[in-house]
Design a protein around this nucleic acid. Sequence first.
DNA 1: GCAAGTTTCACCCTTTGGGGTGAACCTTTG
DNA 2: CAAAGGTTCACCCCAAAGGGTGAAACTTGC
Lengths: 227, 227
Amino acid sequence: MIPYRGDMDAVRVALVNDYEVVARGVAEMLRNYQNRIHVVELDLNKQVGEHVDIALYDTFATTRGDRSEVRDLVSNPLVDVVAVYSWTLEPVHIESAMSNGAGGYISKGLPAAGLVSALETIRAGGKQLHLEQEDAQTVIVGDWPGREEGLSEREAEILALITQGLSNAEIAERTYLSINSIKTYIRNCYRRIGADSRTNALLWGIEHGFRPDRVRIKHPEPAPRSR
Amino acid sequence: MIPYRGDMDAVRVALVNDYEVVARGVAEMLRNYQNRIHVVELDLNKQVGEHVDIALYDTFATTRGDRSEVRDLVSNPLVDVVAVYSWTLEPVHIESAMSNGAGGYISKGLPAAGLVSALETIRAGGKQLHLEQEDAQTVIVGDWPGREEGLSEREAEILALITQGLSNAEIAERTYLSINSIKTYIRNCYRRIGADSRTNALLWGIEHGFRPDRVRIKHPEPAPRSR
DNA sequence: GCAAGTTTCACCCTTTGGGGTGAACCTTTG
DNA sequence: CAAAGGTTCACCCCAAAGGGTGAAACTTGC
């Protein structure tokens, strides 16, 4: 009845992040596992537009700070399970995501095989948390804006949040880091890209792919005034 | 020999400013004087690409801070005379422009008729400085980005320079104003557009036409780093 | 093992930005 | 004439940003 048995068993996964290069990087990681993971295209609005077993939500530079993405994904009837994919592994953050309805939490530190295994396990209703790799395999990392320019993923994330217009305090809150860590990243980031001010860094970011592909930038609405 | 006597006498003028809406605003002012002023289109690079009697250089939010635009225009063999069009009328600034090769200086406070008259006079080799209107005519102002959103021209100029990535000190220097004036304008500007930070104002500016149409934004070059 | 890179954080100090108040002058509008 | 708006500036004070130094833990590559 079904032409391909492999496709029938493959986990249907939507990769969700506002930076296409990030989603593409994850897709690239999964390329060698096409018989086990079927990456589903998002619709024109970058939404999950067809049924998927798992929406894999990458937390890189989230454009909303209230974790509402997870709740939105959970409430999408086309999504069976939402799995959060993040470097942040503290229990308080994991709990927060789960309480928002996530059905899985996967560390970005896992190698591709571990990610695949985690997705399959979650789809099958098994263990939800996949935080550590189980053997010493080489971790193949994904992709992010600014990587070609020499930015680490964390540096890139901070710059992306600057490019969204967030203050240092807001970035610290968004990333669960200390303000001091943020300042350190900013310092390093400016040094790398040759910026000497926030506005210049922001403009550099806009020119180098740091603008989210979904335009949900935090900035003020116009204030009309009669003149 | 010449089909239209009017066109033969009309002053050929190129309107030069990095914000198209500004140039368009001036062109609109001159619309009722088409028999006396022929506005010449710029080429695809926004350069003066054909012979003109006068290049009218509007100083709104100049994207270069060293007055090199005037010198560049002066050295363009297609340009007979460069006239600076500005609100700034202090002798020191006028002298600076003239010493850079400008052959005229016109106040933006002149009504359209005064501007037309000034252009004709300059083209004819007469008086170079046209700083005050000679009678109480209604001043029809030009246009600038953000005008529809309720920004005054000065507020818009400051925001445009913020959007170019300049610091307050740099803006003060560029506009010949005190740092305190800049801060006042910024305050008022933020209130009008509903911004609470520079980065948000910058992002607003980008979304609302404050990006120069010629991409000569002051921002850093990439700093490549081997990784 | 060592060096370099990444991540995270503290602390010190300076610079830049931002909100407020007040004031003067000019122009336009009612 | 008065009010409103635009332009310009001073001054006060605080917040946010930014540069520096140091340190710890971990990972990766030589």
